Simulated assay, not measured.
Amino acid sequence: MSPIRLSDLAFTLEAVIDEAFGQKAVWVVAETSDIKNYPDRGYCFLTLVDRESAGRETLAKMEACIWRRNYHTIGNFEQETGVAFARNIQLLLLVSVSYSPVYGLRLEILKIDPSYTLGNLERERQAVLDSLVKDHPDLIWLEAGQYITANQLLPRPAVMQRLALITAPNSDGWRDFRHELAQNPFGYDFVVDEFLTQVQGQGAERAICGQLERIRTNGVAYDAVVIVRGGGSQLDFGSFDTYLMGQTVAGFGIPILAGIGHERNISITDLLCHQSVKTPTKAAAFLIEHNRQFEESCLQLRERLRMVAREALLSARENLDRETERLRFVSHTYLRGRHTDLAEKAVTLRHLDPSNVLKRGYALLLRNGRILTHTTNIQPNETLQVQMYDGSINVVVSQ
């Protein structure tokens, strides 16, 4: 068989592929790899691979590109899914097939289907949740369509002041959280122990769970554990969607407050922790508002106590006035009765006054100034005195 030139073979392949795929688009499922993105130029080169699901063996690999006319599909995909266009994502792609004798076979990506990616992420997350419910029914269970966990049922302290903070060092989430706490308008003080660690990327879930174990065993009675990180793509939150994180958070013995994403992200950690808010700033605002509610209740109780005390004093004053008036009336009545008695006794005494008795014609018989009332001891020839109203005289007893 006579050899042919390479260009003849290439032109033949170009004709065959153009006949089979020219002016046609095909939906394919593939995983991204080796991405070279040039946003300023408006194009992107990448490799698409198809791997065996079990052993991750590569079954196929093809080069692909996104040209300027379709470059907007990357932004549309990221906006709709919250997932960064990055390597190792399985995507549903609308592609056209082309072959160049110089550049070889290449796929041009025309469109990315965001619903496929969202569905995959949701299926993976649901599978993790189903496994947690099955494996740990004492820590997590479904009730009226809602996931209930042991951590959610922990009593919330009236004041959350002693905090354990898990976050990345010098991150935006760390700065936002600490700034919001420090600048609270009520002047509340918080004691924050920092447990700094990576919160995204390979190994992040084990690093976070390791810090939770440190918090559990260090003997400090924390009011709450706060896990914060700034916003990012859905894949950046992968460490918060794992089986290990779900199990650790659901059964943790201290209330966990999660502020690990933005409005689009709801992770397994969000679903299973004691309280989920969307950002580090909102996590701090939640703690401030929680403590403010306690202060408000104290202020209301103080006002209620003031009102009760005022009412009690008014009632006591009214009772005192009433009893005072009653005492005044009783005393007046008693004294008036005593005054009448004294007046009657004074009249009696005046009647019994010896001078008044003498005035009525009576006389007193005295011996040496002592009144005699019996005749037994009176002797004949004894001199006695007779006291009359207007004076006294001496008499001699003759018989």
Rank of each mutant, 00 (worst) to 15 (best):
S233M: 10
N218A: 15
N381K: 13
G187Y: 02
Y334R: 14
T333H: 12
K359D: 11
D176A: 08
N151P: 14
Y334G: 15
I140H: 10
T269D: 14
G210T: 08
V347L: 09
G75I: 12
R336D: 11
L335H: 14
R216E: 13
L257N: 03
S276Q: 07
I371K: 15
T47H: 05
L313M: 13
M1C: 10
R292F: 01
R302G: 01
N184H: 04
E143G: 00
R322D: 08
L91V: 10
F240S: 14
P280A: 09
T47F: 00
G337I: 07
A10M: 11
I148G: 01
A144C: 11
T197C: 00
L132M: 07
F237K: 10
P280T: 04
A158G: 01
T333V: 10
A204Q: 03
L327E: 06
L94P: 02
W141V: 11
S233A: 14
V49P: 09
V308E: 14
Q234I: 01
K278M: 03
P255H: 14
L6Y: 13
N70A: 02
P157I: 02
V308I: 15
L107A: 04
T47R: 07
A144Y: 07
L92W: 01
P155M: 13
K24T: 03
S53N: 09
A204L: 05
T197N: 02
L118N: 11
A25Q: 01
A10K: 12
L105T: 03
L358D: 04
Q126G: 06
F329Y: 06
I227Q: 09
G145P: 12
I266P: 06
W141T: 15
V220E: 12
L342S: 07
T248W: 09
T197M: 00
L299R: 06
V29G: 00
F77V: 09
I112M: 09
R41K: 11
E205P: 02
Q198K: 02
D138F: 00
R41M: 09
W27A: 00
A54P: 10
I4Q: 06
Q152L: 09
E19C: 01
E323F: 13
Q379W: 05
A258Y: 04
G369K: 05
A221G: 10
G231W: 05
M245I: 15
R162V: 03
A164Q: 12
L287A: 03
S392Y: 08
K24R: 04
G369P: 01
T324H: 11
M62F: 00
S100P: 01
V133S: 10
L313Q: 13
L91N: 08
T248I: 08
S398L: 12
I17P: 02
P3G: 10
A86H: 08
F286V: 02
S2F: 12
V228I: 03
R125F: 08
E78T: 03
G82Y: 05
Y389K: 15
G55T: 15
D113T: 04
R292E: 03
A258H: 08
S7K: 12
Q275E: 08
I266E: 15
D353A: 05
F177A: 07
P255R: 12
R69Q: 05
S53F: 06
E14M: 11
E263L: 04
V220S: 10
G203W: 09
G238K: 02
L327I: 07
G238I: 01
I4P: 11
A20E: 03
T340V: 07
D236I: 04
S297G: 00
S331K: 08
V277C: 00
Y147L: 12
S7D: 08
